[in-house]
Design a protein around this nucleic acid. Sequence first.
DNA 1: GGCCTATCAGACTGATCGTTCTCCCTCATT
DNA 2: AATGAGGGAGAACGATCAGTCTGATAGGCC
Lengths: 221, 221
Amino acid sequence: MIKDEQRGPVSDARERLVIAAYELFSHQGIQAVGVDAIIERSGVARQTMYRHFASKQDLVLAFLERREEVWTRKWLETEVVRRATDPQERLLAVFDVFDGWFRTSDFEGCSFINVMLEHPDRAHPVHRAAAAYLAGIRHFLEGLARQAGIADAEGFARQWHILMKGSIVAAGEGDQDAALRAKKVAAGLLEHALAPGQTPSVRPPTRKPRSAKTRAAGAAA
Amino acid sequence: MIKDEQRGPVSDARERLVIAAYELFSHQGIQAVGVDAIIERSGVARQTMYRHFASKQDLVLAFLERREEVWTRKWLETEVVRRATDPQERLLAVFDVFDGWFRTSDFEGCSFINVMLEHPDRAHPVHRAAAAYLAGIRHFLEGLARQAGIADAEGFARQWHILMKGSIVAAGEGDQDAALRAKKVAAGLLEHALAPGQTPSVRPPTRKPRSAKTRAAGAAA
DNA sequence: GGCCTATCAGACTGATCGTTCTCCCTCATT
DNA sequence: AATGAGGGAGAACGATCAGTCTGATAGGCC
């Protein structure tokens, strides 16, 4: 019965389970969704589910993995890369993509944030997985920052990610313009990170620190 | 028995219930805490709890109310006001207060964010209450922004709040330096909002140079 | 004293939780 | 024809959930 699709050796039942889990978990959270709801929506037998996933937690981990494939890779990163070619513009495009997302009627928020906050215990496998997928998003940002010639790419990516996460929470509150607000802040941050100006920890990538004047002049703040 | 009704101790049992709910809900979330746990920790009889709170949801609403009293008012706002007198410095002091918070061993995150994301339904009373308390924090920021002479105080407060919420989520991921990272971005935002520079919508109307020199020298670190 | 009210202690409800178990059906391979 | 694996349907497990009901105790007030 496992005729499956060409190279995806996934059984039909398993795929239906993951799809059902995705739709339910992403919109309602983990604790609010029982296995009965997943079984009903997937149309799969109870025992079949436990043949593919040893526990509900295993299904949650599979959901997070799918979320990264679908949301992070196939949607966010693909859309950002498609909208611009310049790394700086790609960084800013993140908030344009978010803007459309925030205005969808069934806005579900970031599952990695939701699930991570739902499992506060830092040692919990689900918390660790969600945090790891968030770090994956950060690494994408870090790559763009490095391409843009930003010196402290990691620190910059963490700041950029803070703006992204903050805007997502604001959107959850109901502020549909949260992405535009965050984008304005981000634009200032980007400009500041690329300019040889005020903060001494940030400097232009391929420039000799020869002109100490300009740095000293802007450092006083 | 209820001699109170004027000021403090409403009821000893009720107070113990709210305290127990505060400690459990703030660290573990709503769904993860059953009424049995609250009853056990408070040392109150089951029926006594249902005499003071008609349902668990009522207890959750009481918890959120207490959270605003204790966390927002008595801690965050008080600490911010205590650390600086200049409105600009007070805005930045938010992140200094957060910095200490993020480094506590039992960091519990923002209950308003946690609870709001745990109840995605925007019509749910608990979601609405949590969002309302978040708006309360924003109004505090808006007041400071207005005192600082920022033209679009509301938009500025929303941007500031995005940075705060983003840093809280980052701290939940384990980044203990999240407050410092957000503060740097915030400093740039504040500078930009006060300067008559690029954005024409921003202007410094009623600037109050209350010995800003001596303070600005030691504050920006 | 009697009355009222708050509290305590604990059994109990019906529903739901995640999980296990049993039985039957289908179908490709032997 | 026999085999075995994958799946479907559903009962049943023990635990926990939020919430109800009963009965006893204690103290303030008339």
